[in-house]
Simulated scan of single mutants.
Amino acid sequence: MHRTLDDRSMPRVPMALSVLAGFIVLLYPLPAQAVMQRPLLLMMVLIYWLLYQPRYVGVGYAFVLGLLADVFLQQPLGQHSIIWVVTAFLVMVCRRYLLPLSWWRAWLIAALGIIVAGIAQSLWLYPRYLSADGVFAPFIYSSIIAWPLVMCLLHRSHRPQMHDDW
């Protein structure tokens, strides 16, 4: 079987391990008070791969991850998928207009995606956890703060071979 250059550049193992880690964090049982503190690790992993491997990860990938999240969390099918597809589309559009992709531009796109996904999840999936102060749930802040760590860990496991990486 002949492998092309594109086949060798697709980081299958780092993608699979990072998605698995995201699902473990998503599914790990926490007390009701701590649910809103959990960062959106699977969303951050999705955003990273959308930014650095747009050839292999797109809206369809976000849809499948959302369906899997709905199945594993035993929620109605499509709730996470809709939120994640909209977020993936937003990230892909922003990435297209903010090339070359530097560290701060990646953080800006990720923060926008996390805020959009977090507000949608707060309003639609977890309305009982909203405070009277506002819409922002603590997991939005923790996810934005944790993004540089996630990006550095994934970037070390996989060296993008793109002309616009940093």
Rank of each mutant, 00 (worst) to 15 (best):
A88R: 03
Q37Y: 00
P100K: 08
V57A: 11
Q75A: 15
Q74E: 14
S131H: 04
A106E: 06
G134I: 03
L67A: 12
I83W: 02
T87V: 14
M92V: 11
V71N: 09
V135H: 10
P39V: 01
I47F: 04
V91G: 03
Q37N: 00
I82Q: 09
I47G: 02
V71S: 11
L46M: 13
M44W: 03
Y126I: 00
A132H: 08
Y48W: 08
G60V: 12
L101N: 08
L51C: 09
S81A: 15
Y126S: 07
P54L: 10
A111V: 09
Q75Y: 12
F72A: 15
F136C: 02
Y97I: 15
G134P: 07
F63Q: 09
L41Q: 02
G134F: 03
V59T: 13
A120N: 06
D133V: 06
L108N: 05
L67S: 09
P100V: 07
G60M: 11
F136A: 02
G113I: 05
L41E: 00
V57N: 06
W103N: 07
L112P: 01
V57P: 05
L67R: 10
L99C: 09
V45T: 08
L99R: 15
Q75W: 12
W107E: 11
I119G: 06
Y52I: 04
I109N: 01
G60C: 06
G134Q: 02
L40A: 09
P54A: 09
Y97R: 13
Y97S: 13
V85N: 01
F72P: 08
M92K: 12
R105K: 15
D133H: 04
Y129C: 02
S131A: 06
G66Q: 07
L101E: 07
D70A: 12
W49I: 04
P39D: 00
I83F: 08
I115E: 06
Q37P: 00
L50M: 09
G66N: 06
L67W: 08
L67H: 09
W104A: 13
A120R: 04
A110S: 13
G78S: 11
W124E: 04
V71W: 14
Q37S: 00
P100Q: 11
R95G: 09
L125A: 11
W104I: 14
V59S: 02
A137N: 03
I82C: 13
R105P: 05
V86T: 12
R95E: 10
P39I: 01
S131P: 02
L68E: 09
Q74D: 15
L40W: 01
A88L: 07
L42A: 04
Q75C: 12
L67P: 07
V93R: 15
G66E: 04
R105G: 04
M36S: 06
